[in-house]
Design a protein around this nucleic acid. Structure first.
Length: 759
RNA sequence: UGGGGCGUCGCCAAGUGGUAAGGCACCGGGUUUUGGUUCCGGCAUUCGCAGGUUCGAAUCCUGCCGCCCCAACCA
């Protein structure tokens, strides 16, 4: 992993913060609530927070968000720590708890009360809810909102001491009942919980809400970048509000990213809990579960999880990732670290006719030719063996490369054999295949000229060890379980099947916790608590199997053809309303359209009096309504979005003058754009700006041709590509010329010269 | 009839006015004592839709459409 990890928007923010000196180092944190087990979705947050800190030489804290004694337990704490360590991350000395800050939080709460920014509300839960309003209607104050500071302080103290029952009253921040952001409508800071806490015992009878604890904890710890998932976007305003009203020096900032979703997977606490409690799975660490403990028990290496997370990326778009991505990461990791062994899951007996070699011991490498590792073992061969039943076909289908009547195949590391006969039972099932040995093929080398169809894995029948193998498959059989019906009905009935396989002798000796590849079958992991000498193998992931995929695909197409599934149509095409038509325009806008503006320009101007004023002023100076309108609408409107137009020093008559300059040919439109930016930033007259900055256009052939030639000479291969048909490259060449001329070249002319030179 | 976000290939995802990166999947082909691995090649004239600005738009402007989040004394 020497390549730098892919960039993402958070990385960009951190780089900028470091470059600008806003922060000297990066401090992040992973803040789980100790009320459940970590799953692969958490792994994303863990990798982002710890990974970023690691990459930028900062640190990442592990902080238990233990603010709710009703649902949190000590036991989860250890499981969480273990899982994070297993992933390979280390919080060093920074193992914190929100509960470490209860004293500070309380002091700060008193501070806010004294500032008139918080109050104790004795309304009932129902009353508070009723007063909160809806997303579309504003909240109303409860009778306690304007009570004296002293009364709140006193009540708060009583709450803390446990003098009131649960639910009797709460401390609320006094923010804005009319806020369109529901989080800001006087959020609750403290609620009464007369419940002992797993860390603070019965010291407290009030516990902070998430929002009241989180940002403050970040600030106390000196966190710089507080990274969380998208659903907290609405909370950011509150996060900032609390910190801005507290004596905090370098407030942390919150950034949100999309959390991980997987198809065929359910990760919600509620679902996981239900599956565990209802016995649908064997426990939190069931190898089919996406919990980290489950993945660990299944044998997924933590490195694979990290690689997977890195592959998924970090962005703000809600997305759902296919688990095959994880499977790939697992194979990638295990390919170079799992020694190869052989086992047959569904045995078919093969007898070598005339075998008289007794027990031959063959040397078999643990590694294929392309994995540069040493090591081998001996496998016994005594003339009677098992191969995989699916490796023999009486009537081989097209494309089948394995054993069939008349064919010669290689037994891996052993001999090349040729079919000589087979026996079937009463039901027509093949029960035995007879083969004869090809001479001179010991070790599997084929003599010149002998056609070998394929290589088969096998085990010696007499020495085969019975091995319990657990074949895991996806837990759910549909991509989005629980959406069409109860999730329980979407469970994959074949998510676990147990087989007793026949393994080569050395397989019985593998250590619990070890990975192996069973050749041609998959990667397996010896259950850590399986008995030495009697390993139980979990299938971590199967090998890719293009043959199986092909047969499955043909079967599937046959099935869909049979049911003649109707093509999924999207219904009637969505109708997208157009721009306001002439008829729909207001009178003012219509008048503008008369003067040459487009409908959208007209309605934008007409809808904003200050823009309209600028427009009128500009047109009074120079009569080109259309040109002026487009400057105002496309260039100015953007600037006016974030701030009041009045704060922008640009003047109407300057805009008119600019339009005139362009129409006169004194400057190009491209230069005009630079000038316009200048006018937005500092006002001023366009002519003066042009002079001051030396923005005279370069618009003669003589002046431009050398630059054009230079660019063409520099990018010979692109020139060739252009001539070869990649005409899209023209924009690239123009861009180069524009850059070299500081934007002063006349793009129209550049285009012409370029086209002429490239012809 | 609110507010906050997000729409780039089948699935993720870069890109922020100048050649639409990359990964997975998929399709060809080479190597191969694993139908594995690996290697080569192919795979978005187009970025939710429609207008506009510009020499040039995924990127700027306008309108529209779709999806997610917010009315726990959960986090």
């Amino acid at each position: 992993m020497t390549e730098s990890p892919p960039s993402n928007f958070i990385r960009t923010i951190i780089e900028e913060d470091l470059a600008s000196g806003r922060h000297q180092q990066v401090v992040t944190r992973f803040p789980p609530e100790p009320n459940g087990h970590l799953h692969i979705g958490h792994a994303k947050a863990i990798c982002i927070n710890f990974g970023l800190a690691e990459d930028f030489g900062g640190r990442c804290h592990l902080r238990m968000d233990d603010t709710n004694p009703d649902r949190e337990e000590e036991a989860y704490v250890h499981a969480i720590e273990r899982d994070i360590r297993w992933l390979g991350f280390d919080w060093g000395e920074h193992r914190h708890n929100a509960s470490d800050y209860f004293d500070q939080l309380y002091a700060w709460a008193q501070h806010l009360v004294r500032e008139g920014l918080a109050y104790v509300d004795e309304s009932s839960i129902e009353e508070i809810r009723a007063h909160r309003g809806t997303v579309e209607t504003s909240a109303t104050p409860t009778p306690f909102r304007d009570r004296p500071v002293e009364a709140s302080l006193e009540r708060l103290e009583q709450m803390r001491r446990g003098e009131h029952p649960d639910g009797a009253m709460v401390l609320r921040a006094r923010i804005d009942l009319a806020s369109p952001n529901m989080q800001m409508r006087d959020p609750i800071m403290y609620r009464i919980r007369n419940t002992p806490h797993h860390r603070t015992g019965d010291a407290w009878h009030i516990y902070p809400m998430y929002d009241w604890a989180h940002g403050q904890s970040d600030a106390i710890e000196g966190v710089t970048h507080s990274l969380c998932s998208l659903e907290f976007e609405n909370n950011r305003e509150l996060y900032d509000w609390y910190l801005s009203h507290l004596p905090v020096d370098n407030p942390p900032h919150q950034y949100e990213f999309a959390k991980l979703n997987l198809t065929y997977t359910l990760m919600g606490k509620r679902h996981l809990r239900a599956m565990v409690e209802e016995g649908l799975v064997s426990g939190w660490d069931d190898p089919r579960l996406p919990t980290l403990s489950g993945l660990r028990r299944r044998g997924v290496p933590p490195e694979a999880i990290r690689a997977f997370i890195e592959g998924v990326g970090v962005a703000k778009a809600n997305s759902t990732v296919d688990p095959v991505l994880l499977e790939n990461a697992i194979r990638d990791e295990l390919n170079h670290r799992a020694p190869r062994l052989m086992a047959v899951l569904d045995p078919l007996e093969v007898v070598v006719e005339g075998w008289e070699g007794g027990t031959d011991l063959l040397d078999a490498s643990h590694w294929p030719h392309d994995v540069p590792r040493e090591g081998s073992r001996q496998v016994p061969f005594s003339g009677r063996l098992f191969i995989e039943a699916s490796d023999f076909e009486i009537k081989p289908p097209k494309g089948f490369k394995r054993l069939a009547p008349g064919r010669t195949v290689r037994l891996r590391y052993a001999y090349v054999v040729t079919y000589s006969g087979h026996e079937v039972d009463d039901g027509g099932r093949v029960i035995r295949v007879r083969v004869r040995l090809e001479p001179g093929t010991r070790g599997g080398t084929a003599p010149e000229g002998l056609k070998v169809w394929s290589t088969l894995h096998w085990v010696d029948a007499d020495r085969a060890a019975p091995i319990e193998i657990r074949l895991y498959d996806r837990l759910f059989s549909v991509p989005a379980p629980g959406t069409e019906r109860d999730f329980r009905e979407d469970l994959n009935p074949d998510s676990l099947s147990v087989v007793i396989a026949r393994g080569e002798p050395s397989l019985a000796r593998i250590e619990p916790g070890q990975h192996v590849q069973l050749e041609r079958t998959g990667y397996f992991y010896a259950e850590p608590d399986s008995a030495p000498g009697a390993p139980v193998l979990n299938r971590v992931v199967s090998l890719k199997d293009t043959w199986a995929k092909r047969t499955a695909a043909t079967a599937a197409t046959a099935a869909t053809a049979a049911t003649a599934a109707p093509a999924r149509s999207g219904g009637p095409p969505a109708q997208t309303p157009q721009q306001p038509t002439r008829a729909a325009l207001s009178a003012g806008a219509s008048a503008l359209v008369e003067r040459g503006l487009s409908a959208s320009e007209a309605s934008t101007l007409d809808g904003d009096p200050s823009l309209m004023r600028l427009f009128d002023e500009a047109v009074a100076v120079y009569d080109n309504p259309k040109g002026i309108a487009s400057w105002i609408v496309t260039e100015l409107a953007r600037e006016a979005k974030g701030r009041a137009l009045e704060s922008i020093p640009i003047e109407g008559r300057s805009i008119g003058a600019l339009a005139a300059l362009i129409d006169e040919g004194a400057i190009t439109h491209a230069i005009g754009k630079t000038v316009f930016q200048e006018m937005i930033a500092g006002g001023g007259d366009p002519r003066a700006i042009v002079e001051a900055q030396g923005l005279r256009p370069i618009d003669t052939e003589q002046a431009l041709q050398p630059t054009v030639d230079q660019v063409l000479a520099e990018f010979e291969t692109r020139v060739a590509a252009y001539r070869g048909g990649r005409t899209g490259l023209l924009g690239f060449f123009i861009g180069q010329v524009m850059q070299r001329t500081g934007g002063r070249a006349d793009p129209q002319l550049v285009r012409e010269l370029l086209q002429r030179s490239l012809a």
